[in-house]
Amino acid sequence: MPEDQAQQTPPDPLLQVIDNLARFHREHEKYYSQAPLRQAGELQARSRALKSLADWWSEAEAGERTSAIAFAGAEDLNAPGLAAESGILFMEGEAEPAELRRLKNEVGVLAEDTGQGGAWLTRAMEQAWEIAGSLAAYPALADLLGERHRIIANDWQAAGLQVLVARLLRRALDVLARVDFSPAALRADLRGERNAPAYLYSASELFDRAADLMVESATLVHENERRWRTFRARVRALRSE
């Protein structure tokens, strides 16, 4: 093969695609290196609420309905300080507190969004892996092949963590579904087996692990920032030649 053909630069459209990916995926990852941290904090707050109830119900003695007024607070069921922190308030004439229903609904939405995001990112990394293989044709990028593949590896690992987070959250909701949160049912449980605290502790532990993995996911994505910056600068320099 003639020397000029052996050193021929691959078509520029591929470099354009690579530059586009480096630009927009880096911007996308700036968000996903931060959003899971906020979500993890919110999830930990929900976990603390469940633990507060479990702690209180592990020791509190079940009383009787103390007021005919439907909106009166249930003295024996409300953990001290929890209503102010989380809004969760058990009332004599109500069933499950609206704030507790909202907590579960929000976790369900988070599980769905996180699961879908993880599945999408997994598919995206499959394609990115194939495209990254073509970079070996560019000698000017040879020393950055490891960096580009590390970006993909980090994102792929983050995708797997997101899928696992979704599973943990869904299982936590399954556990919570075993508890009847109406005042009458809770009082019956506190007078008997006291199963509700055990279920709440387990659900909160699943929340905690999910929150930890969300932080790990954000950390992996955050690690890509310098790699993206270095890689794109080289690609742009190569395109300008």
Rank of each mutant, 00 (worst) to 15 (best):
P2R: 10
Q5F: 07
Q5C: 03
A6I: 02
Q7F: 03
P10N: 05
P13Y: 10
L14T: 00
D19R: 11
D19F: 10
N20R: 13
N20K: 12
L21W: 04
A22G: 07
F24P: 04
H25D: 14
E27V: 02
H28W: 07
E29T: 09
P36Y: 04
R38F: 08
Q39H: 10
A40Q: 07
G41M: 03
E42G: 14
L43V: 00
A45Y: 04
A45L: 01
R46P: 01
R46G: 04
A49T: 04
A49G: 09
S52E: 11
S52M: 13
S52Y: 03
L53T: 02
A54H: 08
W56K: 09
W57L: 08
S58G: 14
E61P: 05
G63C: 00
A68S: 15
A68D: 15
A70V: 00
A70M: 12
A70Y: 03
F71Y: 11
A72S: 15
A72M: 07
A72I: 06
A72Q: 11
G73V: 01
A74E: 15
E75K: 13
D76K: 11
D76G: 13
P80E: 11
G81M: 05
A83H: 10
A84W: 02
E85Q: 12
E92R: 03
E92N: 09
E94G: 04
A95D: 15
E96L: 01
A98K: 11
R101L: 13
R102T: 08
K104A: 10
N105C: 04
E106K: 13
E106P: 00
V107P: 00
V109T: 14
A111Y: 02
A111I: 04
A111P: 09
E112Y: 07
T114R: 08
T114V: 02
T114P: 02
T114S: 11
Q116K: 15
Q116F: 05
Q116V: 00
A119T: 09
A119C: 03
T122C: 02
T122Q: 13
E126M: 06
A128C: 06
A128M: 12
W129V: 01
I131W: 05
A132C: 05
L135T: 03
L135V: 06
A137E: 10
Y138G: 11
A142Y: 03
D143S: 15
L145A: 12
L145G: 11
G146H: 02
G146M: 03
G146Q: 03
R150S: 14
N154M: 01
G160T: 01
Q162D: 11
Q162R: 13
A166W: 07
L168F: 03
R171Y: 01
L173N: 14
D174N: 11
V179T: 04
S182E: 10
R187T: 01
R187C: 06
R194L: 00
A196P: 08
A198T: 07
L200F: 00
Y201F: 06
S204M: 05
S204Y: 00
A210E: 08
D212N: 14
E216W: 09
L220R: 13
L220G: 11
E223N: 13
N224G: 08
N224S: 10
N224D: 14
R226T: 02
R234Q: 14
R234Y: 06
